[in-house]
Simulated scan of single mutants.
Amino acid sequence: MEDMLRVGVITSPHGVRGEVKVFPTTDDAARFKTLKQVVLDTGKETISLEIEHVKFFKNMVILKFKGYDNINDIEKYRSKDLLIRREQAVELEEDEYFIADLIGLAVVTDAGEALGTVKDAMETGANDVYIVEMKDGRELLLPAIGDCILDVNLDEGRMTVHVLDGLMDL
Rank of each mutant, 00 (worst) to 15 (best):
L167P: 06
T124F: 14
K33P: 03
G157D: 11
T109W: 04
T26A: 08
R138G: 11
K55N: 15
D69L: 01
I149A: 08
D128M: 13
T25R: 04
F23N: 06
F57V: 06
G116D: 07
I145E: 12
L115D: 02
I99L: 05
M159Y: 04
M168K: 15
F65M: 02
R31W: 07
V118G: 03
C148S: 14
V7F: 01
G137C: 04
F65W: 03
K66W: 14
M1T: 10
R86L: 07
N153D: 14
K66I: 13
V161D: 02
T26P: 07
V16C: 05
C148E: 07
R85N: 13
D151V: 13
K135C: 09
G43A: 00
S12K: 08
K21A: 04
A144V: 04
V39G: 01
R86S: 08
E96D: 08
E45L: 10
E93L: 10
G8M: 02
T25K: 05
F32K: 00
F57M: 09
I99K: 09
M1H: 10
F98S: 05
D27W: 11
I131N: 11
D69E: 13
R6N: 15
G8C: 09
D128W: 14
K33R: 15
N127G: 13
L35A: 02
V39L: 08
A144F: 08
L150R: 11
P13G: 05
A29M: 08
V16N: 06
K55S: 13
H162K: 04
L142Y: 01
L63R: 01
E45F: 08
I149F: 11
V9M: 06
T11K: 07
L92Q: 09
T117H: 13
G137S: 04
A30N: 08
V16E: 06
R86H: 11
G146M: 15
T11E: 08
R31D: 04
A126H: 12
L82P: 05
A29F: 02
Y77A: 00
G104D: 02
D110Q: 08
I103A: 05
D110T: 06
A126E: 07
E96M: 13
F23W: 09
R78I: 00
S12A: 12
P13C: 06
F56R: 00
E156Y: 10
R17Q: 11
T124R: 09
E123W: 12
T11H: 03
I103Q: 06
D151S: 15
K64S: 04
R158T: 15
K55A: 05
E50D: 14
K119C: 10
N72I: 11
G146C: 12
M134D: 08
R85W: 14
T160G: 08
K21R: 12
L82D: 07
G137Q: 01
L83H: 02
K66P: 09
L141W: 07
P13S: 07
M159F: 06
L92T: 15
A114K: 14
I99V: 12
D169C: 03
I10H: 01
T42R: 01
D147T: 10
K64N: 08
V39I: 13
L154M: 10
G166E: 03
N70A: 03
G125A: 09
M168N: 11
T160S: 04
P13K: 02
V38M: 00
